[in-house]
Design a protein around this nucleic acid. Sequence first.
DNA 1: CCTTTAATTTGACCGTGGTCAATTTAATAA
DNA 2: TTATTAAATTGACCACGGTCAAATTAAAGG
Lengths: 193, 193
Amino acid sequence: MARAVQKRTLETRARLIAAAEEIIGECGFEALRVEEVVLRAGTAKGTFFAHFRDKDVLMDLIIGARIDSYLDVLEAAQVPTSPEEMVEALMPLCRFMTCERYVYDLILRYSGAASVEEIGPIATTFGRIVEIFAGWLSHQPFRKDISADLQAEGVHAFMLQAMSVNFCALHNATSVRDRLVPYLHAWLCPGQA
Amino acid sequence: MARAVQKRTLETRARLIAAAEEIIGECGFEALRVEEVVLRAGTAKGTFFAHFRDKDVLMDLIIGARIDSYLDVLEAAQVPTSPEEMVEALMPLCRFMTCERYVYDLILRYSGAASVEEIGPIATTFGRIVEIFAGWLSHQPFRKDISADLQAEGVHAFMLQAMSVNFCALHNATSVRDRLVPYLHAWLCPGQA
DNA sequence: CCTTTAATTTGACCGTGGTCAATTTAATAA
DNA sequence: TTATTAAATTGACCACGGTCAAATTAAAGG
């Protein structure tokens, strides 16, 4: 029969996560090294991989948690009533997602679940984002010809597009905000100049 | 004064690329190892990195060239006159881009130029894709309220969205084609059920 | 308390991308 | 032809993520 999870296990895991958060706070996400994490956590390298399949899984966890906290704020705030307000509400999340090239790439890579059994934290937040959008749009439908869900998926697609283009040196003179507003206008309010 | 490029250099470079193409043909993109490339090309490992900054730059080159050949076909073909035809025309390119998770991730990562000076092959193809779309849409504008360029950027965003979702185990029951058609209908023909 | 067994931890080791001082090769100058 | 110098090549070496058989620890049974 399977034994209960030991308290020691939870403590080790917590120490590893705390060490990682500490490093990220000091040096950013990209600079995180597994060696440094286990050094600060006071464990062997193998222990890290006994707790997390690979380094990216830990990143998925930490970044997913941060995105979730942004979504908590979005859910608690007032429902936006215009594309401009939507973009304004989304800016903090977009800023975090694009804070490092490494972070954005990892988010994109983990936004789809690798398999049905294991949907990671980031992939879960993507589902949540679209739900939040759909909630907004079902209360205040901009368009009547397509469902709130489809509208929400489109908002999501344009949000990613605006962030992606932001990383392109050719086009990053325009901010994510200024790029996203016309997209959402054209998507949510077609025909209204 | 700078000397001309030696013939030897070009030959070495060609041998490296040919070896890489050979490996990709046999085992796919993800399985490519630099060790194996230099082994087949008959050079030392350092030579590889004297020709390509890193492994991804070579991948950028090879994948960019393949995308370009798909775009050549698109440009030679007839201009599509409906969202369905657009999607149909785009399917070969989408299939290639999503042939391996590794390939799709690399494409996303390289779709924005790292700096103004060095716009890689993949980033260049992304500009070309949007130009082709804009060409289509300026001859046959589906919507009059927004520019062909904006319409083109939207088509691009939805194409990426449809491919990304395809990798998510939760949603990949629907094909890229079936996912993209409603997106483009809603984007290009708003108000027409 | 001791024995057994499952869970956890360990660290030497590996695979692979990438670096760089030293060497070789080829072009130019004398 | 020979000396000089810039370009190209080499391979030992490093960094870092990840593996795994062996050792350790903690819980359950007698």
